[in-house]
Design a protein around this nucleic acid. Structure first.
Length: 206
DNA sequence: CCCTGATTCGC
DNA sequence: GCGAATCAGG
């Protein structure tokens, strides 16, 4: 394979889209990711940084006192552990006195961390229902889920378990992420609840 | 381990 | 110019 104009164009496009070298190589075919990276460099488009330069660190200028400061003695600074803020409960504190309360927030767009919107009636992630899975298997799954890697959607790969755990409407939601069975989307435990032979499924009413 | 990009260097 | 091998890192 050679770098025809068309192939180079595809390379440029995908690279600018942020695609990985391996993904591009896969798309093009006949080349390895090394070849792609090599070409990328030769084309001089290695810098995918169109970012507006991450602000040259606004050095927190200490307020200059009126008196002429002598020296700025830098302590070795024993690296004081940054105080870890305890995770606050999500419930916003309700003003004790709504009448006296000053309007703290202007009626403009408030960048309150939005949570994923799940339409009403959206079925929850598949959860092994007790009447279809044996108690043993169910217990096994529960146990496995304690060790879930808790991956986000973007962290899933072809070989991570994609079984959803929790309620997508809340923060307590993630994907299992344990090693998936070869060729399957789930890990062993979740495969066992996800794929059931018709025979065992049939007639398991109540 | 899986993956990423960066670099080198013989071809 | 090309890209495998290698390096460095997450």
């Amino acid at each position: 394979m050679s770098w025809t104009d068309e192939r180079v164009e595809t390379l440029k496009r995908m690279w600018s889209e942020g695609q990985s070298a391996s993904a591009i190589a896969k798309e093009l075919g006949g080349v390895t990711r090394n070849a792609v990276i090599g070409k990328v460099h030769r084309l001089g488009l290695s810098n995918r940084n169109d970012e507006p330069e991450p602000a040259p660190v606004p050095a927190p200028e200490p307020a200059i006192g009126s008196g002429a400061e002598k020296k700025i003695d830098r302590k070795p600074a024993p690296a004081a552990e940054p105080a870890r803020p305890e995770p606050q409960p999500e419930v916003a504190a309700v003003p004790a006195d709504p009448v006296k309360e000053e309007p703290v927030t202007p009626p403009v767009f408030t960048p309150v961390p939005r949570r994923p919107i799940v339409p009403a009636g959206q079925p929850l992630p598949p959860q092994p229902s007790a009447n279809e899975i044996s108690p043993e298997t169910l217990a096994s799954v529960r146990e496995v889920e304690k060790r879930a890697k808790k991956l986000t959607l973007m962290e899933l790969t072809e070989r991570t378990c994609k079984w959803p755990i929790g309620d997508p409407a809340t923060e307590k939601f993630w994907f299992c992420g344990l090693p998936s069975q070869a060729g399957k989307p789930y890990c062993d435990a979740h495969v066992s609840v996800a794929f059931q032979p018709m025979s065992s499924r049939r007639d398991r009413r109540r």
